[in-house]
């Protein structure tokens, strides 16, 4: 979409002789075209789809998790990660003794997650459609 398209749209909308099309007819045509296409080479497509599916299942990786993992290990989030790891270690060691009040690492986890998501957000949006 360039500037020219915008201007074109504006002109088209303003001209009284322009034709407003209901959406139905083109959609039907499309559907028909699809049907024909699928009938003609069903077998080929199925094979191709199967192959694609297998590939996709292997390939699919959530970019959010990838970026957040990178961010968690980055220098930016090093203090938060340090605190979180320390807390996890402390709590796991303390839980063996089972004495007094139990501590949890929720707050440390929050700080780490906040840092990681904040750092990953723009990268993620650049990748997602």
């Amino acid at each position: 979409m360039g500037v020219w398209d915008v201007i074109n749209d504006l002109v088209e909308a303003a001209t009284p002789w322009g034709i407003a099309e209901a959406e139905a007819p083109p959609a039907e045509e499309k559907a028909e075209a699809k049907d024909e296409g699928s009938k003609s080479d069903d077998a080929e497509e199925e094979e191709a789809e199967e192959a694609e599916e297998e590939e996709e299942e292997e390939e699919l990786e959530d970019p959010k998790e990838k970026f957040e993992e990178e961010c968690r290990n980055s220098k930016q989030c090093a203090p938060a990660k340090h605190h979180f790891d320390e807390c996890v270690e402390r709590v796991t060691n303390a839980s063996d003794d089972d004495e007094g009040e139990k501590e949890d690492c929720v707050e440390e986890f929050f700080h780490l997650a906040h840092c990681a998501t904040q750092c990953a957000a723009p990268k993620l949006w650049a990748v997602l459609k």
Partner: peptide
């Protein structure tokens, strides 16, 4: 968006998760 994607693989150490509930920060 955060709620839908924010489920960690496992709750952080020491966090209490009620019966029938899931941890979501």
């Amino acid at each position: 968006f955060s709620l839908l994607t924010g489920y960690p693989d496992e709750p952080p150490a020491g966090a209490q998760v009620g019966a029938g509930l899931n941890f979501n920060p």
